[in-house]
Design a protein around this nucleic acid. Structure first.
Length: 575
RNA sequence: GCCCUGGUAGCUCAGCGGAUAGAGCAACCGCCUCCUAAGCGGUAGGUCGCAGGUUCAAUUCCUGCCCAGGGCGCCA
């Protein structure tokens, strides 16, 4: 049920009937005394129609019959229309939601095929905190889109190709020459492996030459070299899988579409650009010049698709990916959860894809950018030793802190239960810290903020859930309720209204790719429940309030669980 | 130089054309013989970077400026 949309349609129709067709601009009421929803469109419509806004509002009311669902519709201030819903109507909607496996959320009328490009780690290194946002935010949006009935195709565009792999293979060969043949052991700490290889590359001329030789052999398809490369990639992918599982992210090996998968497309793609007359040679490189991109000194800015030495670049691969996603995967919409620093690059890639006809205007190309991870000093983030914080270390730390906390708060729980809580709470806190922010600007890495368990954090919602489960456990009830819902107390009504607004929040998340809106919704919902919990006894209440409250509890638990699941955050029965 | 972002309470952040700008943390005051106090209720805290403009209405849109971060030809 989407009340906002329903009211938007009804009020808009009334505006048209009153002779001033305009959007109703229905939104949640700014203050409780204004009701539940307010329509702001009358003032603007009156302006256009050159009439008095309050008079127009009056005319709108004459064409607006909301008596089936609203108990009060009134004009306020300069021309607002305030709407208060009927308690019995709300209760009906809640009962319907409680009986529905999707909690009353209807599938979208026009499902789309949405390709979502997210996570995309570079396999030359280990996943670090900088990969967190893309992975988590992308995954949350993916889950919401699927929940609403869209067809989602995940694309993990991992970096598995490029010059650095020559260096890594060369180093692997050296290690083997020294008798270290167990790949898993060698690559247990990928970050260290990369660092050592790089150090050798920078200091040892002979090694650097070997590395360059391996790049050439790799690109020419040398079988032995490819086998070594594959060994490395497989091991590195295993590291990623481990992180994905720990993070409770839905990406699987089947979603991996690495850069190297497009290798054969690259010459074809360049040839197509040439045929379409888009290619220009500049200083030996194959470039596309588009009028909207101007560089320094007003000179046209090239998008280089092939280097003067014949090599291809990541722009070329990204173009091949668009071509594949539109042509083969039939995408209606392609979402990129990629660092803001790549904003110009993606704008260029999108523009070339449009110009070449690979992405028609009907396909939406969206860069959902986010900022760079910074240190406390506001400079790009590094640990004391100058390295990056590995994602796996962050998750370990989170679980350790959560374990300490749960052991202190609830020592009665078994060791196994406490570990389970620590995992759900620790990982949930890390994810929520990122998901709850809409920042496109840079953000500062801070252990304490990221691992905070107080206030507007995942544990708050998880705790609300356990309180509800505890009620059902105490009452020896299975969580299923059938009683009708009665909204008598203000806290019951506030909770009920919030519950019925789940679909509104999900639609915003899906259209704008903003999981923080779902976080905000769940926080409000959990807050409404906490107030209800304090104000309204459940098990000790007289019938029919008892059954009604149990039903509200049941729907709240289901909504929190579903909402958190859409964010990739788990719930626990006790904490 | 040009182009992106961002600047809201001491700190971290919501709100982005509408009625008295909201949370969390930190501070202060209350609330556990009562379904888990990882909680609830309350107090205090703001020239929404600055200056113009558009509008019935601007934190929200436009212009200029200041500050911070990022990007701008063969790395990804």
């Amino acid at each position: 049920m989407n009340i906002r949309q329903l009211l938007e349609e009804r009020v808009s129709r009334a505006l048209a009937a009153a002779g001033a067709p305009a959007p109703a601009l229905v939104q949640h009421a700014a203050r409780p005394e204004f009701g539940d929803y307010q329509a702001n469109g009358v003032m603007a419509a009156a302006k256009t129609a050159k009439t008095n806004p309050r008079q127009l509002a009056q005319a709108v009311l004459e064409h607006l019959d909301l008596s089936d669902l609203a108990e009060r519709v009134e004009i306020a201030g300069p021309g607002f229309i305030n709407i208060r819903l009927r308690d019995d109507w709300l209760a009906q909607q809640l009962a319907a939601a409680a009986a529905d496996s999707k909690l009353g959320v209807r599938p979208v009328a026009e499902p789309q095929t949405v390709v979502v490009d997210y996570s995309g780690p570079n396999l030359a290194k280990e996943m670090h905190v900088g990969h967190l946002r893309s992975t988590i935010i992308g995954d949350a949006v993916v889950r919401v889109l699927e929940f609403l009935g869209h067809k989602v195709i995940r694309q993990n565009h991992v970096g598995d190709w490029g010059t650095q792999f020559g260096m890594l293979i060369a180093y692997m060969v050296r290690q083997r020459a020294e008798g270290k043949t167990d790949v898993s052991t060698q690559l247990a700490d990928l970050e260290a492996f990369y660092r050592e290889a790089k150090q050798l590359y920078d200091s040892d001329q002979a090694f650097a030459a070997e590395a360059r030789d391996y790049v050439v052999r790799l690109q020419s398809g040398d079988a032995e070299c490819l086998a070594l490369w594959k060994t490395f990639i497989d091991e590195s992918m295993r590291h990623c899988e481990e992180v994905y599982q720990r993070l409770n992210v839905t990406l699987t090996p089947a979603d991996v579409k690495p850069e190297s998968a497009y290798n054969d497309d690259l010459p074809v793609l360049v040839a197509e650009l040439r045929e379409k007359g888009l290619l220009t040679e500049s200083e030996g490189a194959q470039c596309v010049f588009l009028p909207e991109f101007i560089g320094k000194d007003d000179k046209p800015l090239p998008i280089i698709v092939q280097k003067s030495d014949g090599g291809y670049l990541y722009a070329t691969t990204d173009l091949a990916a668009i071509r594949h996603r539109v042509g083969r995967l039939k995408a209606d919409r392609i979402l990129y959860f990629v660092d803001a620093r790549q904003s110009l690059h993606l704008r260029q890639v999108f523009a070339v894809a449009r110009a070449a006809g690979w992405a028609p205007e009907s396909v939406s190309l969206e860069h959902l950018a986010f900022g760079t991870m910074m240190g406390e000093d506001g400079k790009p983030f590094k640990t004391r030793t100058g390295g990056t914080v590995k994602l796996i270390d962050l998750l370990d730390e989170a679980e350790q802190r959560a374990l300490r906390l749960v052991s202190e708060k609830n020592p009665e729980l078994s060791e196994e239960q406490r570990r389970e809580v620590a995992s759900a709470v620790g990982i949930g806190a890390v994810k929520y810290a990122d998901l709850s922010k809409n920042r496109t600007s840079d953000y500062i890495f801070n252990w304490d903020h990221m691992l905070s368990f107080d206030g507007n954090t995942a544990p708050y919602m998880q705790y609300a859930y356990t309180r509800i489960r505890s009620i059902f456990r105490r009452g020896e009830l299975d969580g299923k309720t059938d009683g009708s819902i009665i909204l008598a107390e203000p806290a019951e009504r506030a909770l009920g209204l919030k519950l019925i607004q789940f679909e509104e929040a999900l639609l915003t998340v899906a259209t704008e790719c903003v999981p923080h809106v779902l976080c905000g919704y769940l926080y409000d919902l959990a807050g409404a429940f906490m107030s209800f919990y304090e104000a309204c006894p459940v098990l000790k209440a007289e019938e029919p309030a008892r059954s009604s409250r149990l039903a509200l509890c049941g729907l709240t638990a289901a909504t929190i669980q579903t909402g958190l699941d859409l964010l990739g955050i788990r719930v626990v029965e006790q904490m």
